[in-house]
Amino acid sequence: MLLSYFKNILFCLLLLFCTMSIAEEDRLIITGNNSRAPKIYLDEMQHPKGYLIELMNIITKEINLTAEYKLQNWPKAVEDANLGKYAIIGFSRSNERLKIFDFSEEPLYYDKIVVVTTKKNPLKFETYEDLKNKKIAALRGANYGYIFEKMLKENGFNYVETFSIESQLELLLQDKIDGFLIGPGAEGLNSAIMGAKNPEIQKRRNEFRILKKPFNLDPNYIAILKSRNQKPLLNKIDEALKKLKAEGKLSHIYGDK
């Protein structure tokens, strides 16, 4: 009897959680990466910053919402988005993600994903075949689009999962991997080096190099778990983004990126 009572209570709590909206009244609650400056990050005062944040603030104002941010490490951000707690930005499409997430149709931004290695490592990247049997690291929960997903499934490289960019930098300096993927371009690498807590990384920063050819140009979207039934909201975001672009109100964000 008591067990049945607690089961009913648990069911009600789960039902309440599942019916809570990510867009509560006039707020849109958004998660994302807390350490991808200048794209998206928390500053020293733990305030959300970056051009994705600025972009979302403009878009949400256009549709009469206020954006509230829960930026955190990327694996936790993806986990919370998978649970339907928040919308997520800086999110790449993939076949697996399309099964459980609704995405905006319009990309918020195109992320230049590059391969980072060291000057002493002979790694080259002219075609994807060049990465075959190479140890390439990426953040847990990261997905850099369809080509990345395809290479993972087909063992296009030896995938090394990490929990931070700093650990990838350390693994490179220790010759434990051949390279890792990062965006947006040189900005992302420089930000990671400057933000590293390990002094050895900054001391040896000149040992890193970015391969000339980008891994890909990865469109980033805003996405919400399908069970949240927020496709109408995503449609409004799409319409606002198109309108703002047409009016030239986002040129200061897109113009030099």
Rank of each mutant, 00 (worst) to 15 (best):
F11D: 11
C12E: 10
L13Y: 13
L15F: 11
L16C: 14
T19M: 15
A23H: 09
A23C: 05
L28H: 05
L28M: 14
T31M: 08
T31F: 04
N33T: 08
S35I: 05
A37C: 12
I40R: 05
E44W: 04
Q46T: 05
H47S: 12
L52S: 01
L55E: 01
N57V: 13
I59D: 03
T60S: 01
K61E: 15
E62T: 08
E62R: 08
I63R: 04
E68N: 03
E68Q: 08
W74Y: 13
P75D: 09
A77E: 00
L83T: 10
L83K: 02
K85L: 07
I88G: 06
I88D: 11
F91H: 04
F91T: 02
F91I: 05
R93T: 02
S94L: 00
S94D: 02
L98T: 11
D102R: 07
D111L: 06
K112G: 00
N121I: 04
N121G: 01
P122N: 11
Y128I: 10
L131Y: 00
N133P: 11
I136V: 14
M151K: 12
L152A: 02
N155V: 12
N158A: 06
V160D: 11
E161Y: 12
I165S: 09
Q168N: 15
L173A: 05
I177H: 03
F180T: 03
N190K: 06
A192S: 06
M194I: 11
G195R: 06
G195Q: 14
A196I: 07
A196H: 00
P199M: 10
P199C: 13
R205Y: 09
I210W: 01
D218L: 01
N220D: 14
K226A: 04
N229V: 04
L234F: 13
E239L: 07
E247Q: 15
L250D: 00
S251P: 01
I253F: 05
Y254D: 00
G255K: 14
K257Q: 14
K257V: 03
